Simulated assay, not measured.
Amino acid sequence: MTKEWFDKLPDSMKKQSDFDNAHYWEQCFFALPPSLAPALASPERLRNGLELVKNYYHANGVTSGCEPGGLLSKKIAGRAERGAERLLRAIPFLFRR
């Protein structure tokens, strides 16, 4: 995150952040994913994470699971959901949703 990036944020987001210490809360937190996602949420990393979950479930006899958390941003949540759907369909094993 650069100072130029921060300076372009709306005032409401700036009030919920501490740029000098790289702390971002609530509204400002949701401004981070577009910059961080390419490094943290690449298709390969997401696939590896889903494989880890699948292996954990299979090794421990887990028969169901869910994600109890959620995102307040429908735009971000929708993108995440579509990405997970594509990855789950691409993995060659039964994993019903």
Score class of each variant (00 low, 15 high):
1 M>P: 09
2 T>R: 05
2 T>E: 07
2 T>A: 01
2 T>P: 02
3 K>T: 08
3 K>W: 10
4 E>V: 07
5 W>P: 05
5 W>Q: 06
6 F>Q: 05
7 D>W: 06
7 D>V: 04
8 K>V: 02
8 K>P: 03
9 L>I: 04
11 D>C: 02
12 S>F: 12
13 M>I: 05
14 K>Q: 10
16 Q>H: 07
17 S>E: 00
17 S>K: 04
17 S>T: 03
18 D>K: 02
18 D>V: 00
18 D>C: 02
20 D>M: 00
20 D>Y: 01
22 A>R: 12
22 A>N: 12
22 A>H: 13
23 H>K: 11
25 W>P: 00
26 E>R: 11
26 E>K: 10
26 E>I: 06
26 E>V: 09
26 E>Y: 05
27 Q>K: 12
27 Q>L: 11
28 C>E: 03
29 F>C: 07
29 F>M: 09
31 A>I: 04
31 A>C: 04
31 A>F: 01
32 L>F: 00
33 P>W: 01
33 P>Y: 03
34 P>C: 03
34 P>R: 00
35 S>P: 02
35 S>R: 10
36 L>R: 06
37 A>Q: 09
39 A>E: 12
40 L>N: 06
41 A>K: 02
41 A>N: 09
42 S>P: 03
42 S>H: 07
43 P>K: 05
44 E>P: 01
45 R>Y: 00
46 L>H: 04
46 L>P: 03
46 L>I: 12
46 L>K: 10
47 R>F: 01
47 R>C: 04
47 R>E: 15
47 R>Y: 00
48 N>M: 09
48 N>C: 06
49 G>S: 12
49 G>H: 03
49 G>Q: 08
51 E>C: 07
51 E>H: 09
52 L>T: 13
54 K>F: 13
54 K>E: 13
54 K>T: 11
54 K>Y: 14
54 K>N: 14
55 N>V: 04
55 N>P: 02
56 Y>G: 08
57 Y>F: 14
57 Y>E: 10
58 H>M: 12
58 H>C: 11
58 H>Y: 11
60 N>E: 05
63 T>M: 08
63 T>R: 15
63 T>E: 15
63 T>I: 10
65 G>D: 04
66 C>Q: 14
66 C>R: 15
67 E>V: 14
70 G>H: 08
71 L>Y: 13
74 K>M: 10
75 K>G: 06
75 K>F: 10
78 G>S: 05
78 G>D: 09
79 R>E: 14
79 R>V: 11
80 A>P: 01
81 E>N: 14
82 R>L: 13
83 G>D: 13
84 A>Y: 07
85 E>P: 01
85 E>V: 11
86 R>T: 14
88 L>S: 09
88 L>G: 06
89 R>E: 15
90 A>N: 08
91 I>K: 03
91 I>Q: 08
91 I>T: 03
91 I>R: 04
92 P>C: 02
92 P>Y: 01
93 F>W: 15
93 F>M: 06
93 F>N: 06
94 L>G: 12
94 L>N: 14
95 F>P: 03
96 R>T: 14
96 R>A: 13
96 R>H: 13
96 R>E: 15
